[in-house]
């Protein structure tokens, strides 16, 4: 999930490691052990947001940063179609991108996505719809 959100493996590893290091230093106080996974997902999502914010501050004044996952260098690993979809996904607003990754990669329900993202389920659904429409527009096709 982190790789899909930040676009490169090294940054994703840093984000996830930071989450686990923090949990090791100060374990989360959860009333239900089953919530641990949701806690980790939310922590990773927040870590990705911070990494992207730092990257924007760092690169925004110089040139747009193109993460390697959807860059030309990844062509040897990804098919052209997958790369086009990932580049379209990268151009979406942050919230829409997060919603699509949580839904179509982790296959979470609207309620689970809402808990991870900290928004209402209704907002998840509307965000998802707008995200698919925007992605279709980016890819040059209509939503079917």
């Amino acid at each position: 999930m982190a790789v899909l959100l930040v676009g490169d493996e090294a940054t994703a590893e840093d984000v996830v490691q930071d989450v686990f290091l923090r949990m090791q230093g100060k374990p989360p106080c959860l009333d239900d052990a089953g919530k641990l996974l949701a806690y980790v997902r939310t922590a990773v999502l927040n870590g990705c947001r911070m990494a992207l914010r730092r990257r924007k501050r760092l690169w925004g004044r110089i040139e747009p940063h193109e993460p390697p996952v959807w860059s030309a260098e990844s062509a040897v690993l990804l098919s052209e179609d997958r790369r086009e979809v990932m580049r379209g996904l990268q151009r979406l607003p942050r919230r829409q991108r997060e919603a699509l990754v949580l839904r179509y990669y982790l296959e979470l329900s609207d309620e689970e996505v809402s808990r991870v993202m900290g928004i209402r389920p209704g907002t998840v659904r509307s965000t998802m719809t707008r995200a698919l429409t925007a992605l279709a527009s980016e890819l040059g096709e209509g939503v079917r």
Partner: peptide, 26 residues
């Protein structure tokens, strides 16, 4: 739909480039 399938495939394929078994020490 087709777009969702393409998105699902792209996400899964991109995530698959990450070697899950490689050791990542802290």
């Amino acid at each position: 739909n087709e777009l969702e399938k393409r998105l699902h495939d792209a996400l899964a394929g991109t995530a698959a480039t990450v070697d899950e078994d490689v050791e990542r020490p802290f």
